[in-house]
Design a protein around this nucleic acid. Sequence first.
RNA 1: GGAGAGGUGGCCGAGUGGUUGAAGGCAGCCGCCUGCUAAGCGGUUGUGGGGGUCACACCUCACCCAGGGUUCGAAUCCCUGCCUCUCCGCCA
Length: 425
Amino acid sequence: MLDIRFVREHTDKVIEALGKRNESTAILDKFLEIENRRRDVLKEVEDQRQTRNRVTKEIGTLKKEGKDAASLLSRAKEISDRITEKESSLRALEENALQELLLIPNVPDESVPVGKDENENVEIRTWGARPEFSFEPLNHWDIGEELDILDFERAGKIAGARFVINKGAGAKLERALMNFMLNLHTKEHGYTEIFPPVLVNKEAMTGTGQLPKFEEDLFKENSKGFYLIPTAEVPVTNIHRQEILNEDDLPIYYTAHTPCFRREAGSHGKDTRGLIRQHQFNKVELVKFVKPEESCNELEALTRNAEEVLMRLGLHYRVVSLCTGDIGFSAAKTYDLEVWFPAQQKFREISSCSNFTDFQARRAGIRFKSPGKKGTRFVHTLNGSGLAVGRTFAAILENYQQEDGSVIIPEALQHFMGTEKISKS
RNA sequence: GGAGAGGUGGCCGAGUGGUUGAAGGCAGCCGCCUGCUAAGCGGUUGUGGGGGUCACACCUCACCCAGGGUUCGAAUCCCUGCCUCUCCGCCA
């Protein structure tokens, strides 16, 4: 969420940001109206509390001296009643103001290209080259089923659409990818491995910005009100919720491998086949907590860390800077990594790396303190996929498929797979 | 699931319902002192909001797990929730 004072004092900037995002300023107007009333009532409440504190103290003194305080008592009672009344309307205003504020998106960074939708995203760089095939390359789901390493049909039987069973070498490849990615990030990129809960509470979901706006994207557990995480960003960022970190502890780098769960409501008919859009998928996530002045550079570094995975797997990809109309609600800036899918003849998102500036930190109350200095500041949080395992799996099948139906295992993975190739058994 | 105990500042730890934002200790910071170090002496140190200032100063409100309640007044009393710990049972 944005700083209340910033919204109040730089309303023009917020209006501009909403405009760039193609969003109406209606929420802002509503927020400001409530906020102004809140401040008026707050002033009244505080003035009256001050009076009450004075009278109350006097009563205490009189009682101690054994004097009569009856007249003051009735006056104090009167004031208190009035305060109680005002307080309840103040509480309502505070709650309403917060609810509106939670719906206002982050302000895009200056460097983010202005654009309406994904068509105006800007390609930053590409790596590698499209693989050449002497035959018509197959879709990964056909390859996977043919090799008997992916089973969508039976997954449908036990769970439903948008689920998959990995089998044999398919299960092993999934595991190899997770190990490869985690090893790279922990051993070479300096991230600390985390294995967090995948069921989280409402506060955690609000902290990273999934709630209240995107409830329909989430699976909710009914008996205790847990939510299944749509990304490890949620539990891992919330590790430090409501904490004041020491400046010396920053930056903090975490990586986590978790299953992710998404309702995919509103994407009926999109990517109905294959691994691209599943209700459950594995992902290795990168999360950073950094000082504000460093978050821009940290985003570049984080993105490079994710790219390294693709480079080592020898997968052709490009980096795209999302335009203002396409960046996520909580993000100030986002780079998407898109990997080449030969069968579809297009680049598909495989990682999304974002700088959330202080937007999540303010929601989640993650601050830091400099030793010897007064006050605290909000950290900046960043995260990115490093990478989505299912989509990486799919990309490997498609890019490394052979004419005989087998799939070559990229060298970086061979050690984890114990084999150079997956063939039909 | 059953039975208990407990949640106070960066940490430890006090706290008869009325100058307690909170004793004391530790740690930190600033001085002083002592060949150096250690010790010693004095002072100082929470967070958030509102007002105020060029900026300080300063004024004020709130905060002793969270949310309600009792009261003129709550860290202190009552209720609910959350979390932690111990014992029993169950369990991967």
